[in-house]
Design a protein around this nucleic acid. Structure first.
Lengths: 335, 335
DNA sequence: CTGAAAGCGCTTACAG
DNA sequence: CTGAAAGCGCTTACAG
């Protein structure tokens, strides 16, 4: 590979290959050409170490090759121990790499950063955007949808906005957990619920309720915030109120872990006295004391699927308004 | 803001404002202009909702406004519970936002992805790159340095490559932890070390050794991999070998947590029988049983500083070959 | 299948 | 301080 002090352009390659710039462009983009010109061009490219100038290409195609992942920084999940964020990115990254797209990360922390993101999307500095872990009815979702840029979210939007999304079966997973508890003979099954302004919180609570109601058992609900601390506090209240719970379904593993710690400290045996099931199956859960039973959700799979759907939308395809990925009940020692 | 079906360009703005495109460009870029033309242009921009086309600008300025963060996916840290990755990104993101630059995330998982990254850097699809958590003497570092693109790493490179870096005082932090144990009267202080092919592993071990040697105490070293499992295994071996250790300095909180679990299970009292100090101060540490003493490192600060240095390098400034951020010994109950 | 030419939307010497 | 004009490096009808 020859390296001048100036990077080679289509022009340089064309000259070397003895063809026109148009032909080089076509070869580079995989369009039909005679085997001879193709070979000549490919050789020239290799010799010169030619790499296309993306800005020039973008200027005419109006495609940047950039896909944004927008995360409200306020999201508990971004900087939480639940590993949601890294795993999501891992999945997204795989999918984008196969499509030769780059991932641009945008944290929407402040009102200003949210505005920057809106303008960025509106001005098409990226080809599409993935929205993750938005709390409640975030105005950003609506703004992006309005801007007509291809968007995929990791959950359905709350409020009146409709956005294509990819999520896991929160309802079914919660339901399966509770049904397992019921089948095991538990009669007073409490839930430590997630925030009521998050889809995951809402849907998992509904799954709990329906399973409980179907079993003719009493509902025992206490609110948490998906964090370990909130789980510990909720468990403490459950104990203090003498709820008589013989099982707890926590809507996140972190909350379940908090509950487990409180139970251990108070000398309550798990699962003998109280059975515990979490939701997520994060790394920590297998190492919990005792090892935690939980509902596994495929976080990297969400990422891959979101990216895949978005790429299709960017290519002008009609995509499914919603994709729901299955969850799986993982039984260990806590229930 | 008027919105045609076509986005406004400099041309449109110039027409509306009654000036030339050059003048609009200068106003947009904050170059000198008469108050009148400035006002006219700003009004036109507001009315039209003009946002510059970045590709066009990049084509002439050769600046993309994009900064890459490259993470070898094999890195334990990227998908580890230690929150290194999210926190680093948080710091980077803040700094880049202030400078109006976008963050492109590149995971170097396979040989192919590593090649893509090299080409991307070589072709200047980004203005600069930050390299994090590279194991051993990664060839990517050398390749990037060779390509002359501005680079900043989160630790010094192993091997012969020299790369500007920002890191914490691993050596001093480890030393402080061990000195605290010595001062507390511990006489057989073991260390669960990190990988010997990572800077953090190497430097923390050296800090331990020097402090131990200075105190005239015997070295008791056992290798770990920064993970909880490896910490647990190391602790188990320490116990099995009847090392007689009355203190353990683990080179990461995750390893310390693994050790703590083993000690609890074996009925060894912490800190009475064995004192434990970790390194990192991750979220989990305050919730450990007992709450963990540890060496806090400012991960988000590393991110901010890396980004700040890189931005200066991108602007052609000469930057420090190394910046070392301080660590802080945080005492809780385990030591 | 290929080439000549126009054009994508900016910035920046160069003159004035 | 401002404008006319060139040019950044591609892609893509259009003709042939």
């Amino acid at each position: 590979m020859v390296q001048g002090h100036r990077r080679p352009t289509l022009e340089t390659v064309a000259e070397r290959a003895g063809v026109s710039r148009a032909t080089v462009s076509r070869v580079v983009n995989g369009q039909p050409s005679t085997p001879e010109s193709r070979r000549a061009v490919e050789e020239a490219i290799a010799e010169l170490g030619y790499v296309p100038n993306l800005a020039a290409r973008t200027l005419v195609t109006r495609r940047t090759g950039l896909i944004a992942l927008v995360l409200p920084e306020s999201s508990t999940r971004v900087f939480s121990e639940d590993q949601f964020f890294p795993q999501l990115i891992q999945g997204i990254s795989q999918e984008l790499e196969e499509a030769d797209r780059q991932l641009v990360l945008m944290l929407a922390g402040s009102a200003e950063s949210t505005q920057r993101i809106e303008r960025s999307a509106q001005a098409r500095h990226v080809d599409g955007v993935m929205l993750a872990s938005v709390h409640g009815a975030n105005p950003l979702t609506a703004a992006l949808v309005r801007s007509k840029i291809p968007v995929v979210s990791n959950e359905r939007a709350l409020g009146s906005v409709v956005v294509p999304h990819v999520d896991v079966d929160n309802y079914g997973g919660a339901r399966a957990a509770v049904e397992h508890l019921v089948a095991a003979g538990r009669r007073r099954i409490a839930t430590i619920a997630g925030p009521s302004d998050m889809v995951a919180g809402i849907d998992r609570l509904q799954g709990y309720r329906d399973a409980i109601d179907d079993a003719g058992l009493p509902r025992v609900e206490i609110a948490g915030e998906f964090t370990r601390t909130s789980g510990a506090e909720a468990m403490q209240r459950l104990l203090a109120e003498e709820s008589g719970a013989d099982a707890v379904f926590a809507a996140s593993d972190l909350m379940a872990d908090g509950a487990l710690r409180v139970l251990r400290r108070e000398g309550v045996r798990v699962p003998e006295d109280v059975a515990v099931i979490g939701f997520d199956d994060i790394a920590l859960s297998a190492h919990a004391d005792p090892p935690m039973s939980t509902v596994r959700q495929p976080i990297a799979g969400i990422g891959r699927t979101m990216a895949g759907q978005l790429l299709r939308a960017v290519d002008g395809e009609q995509i499914e308004p919603a994709v729901t990925l299955p969850t799986e009940l993982v039984l260990r020692s806590s229930a």
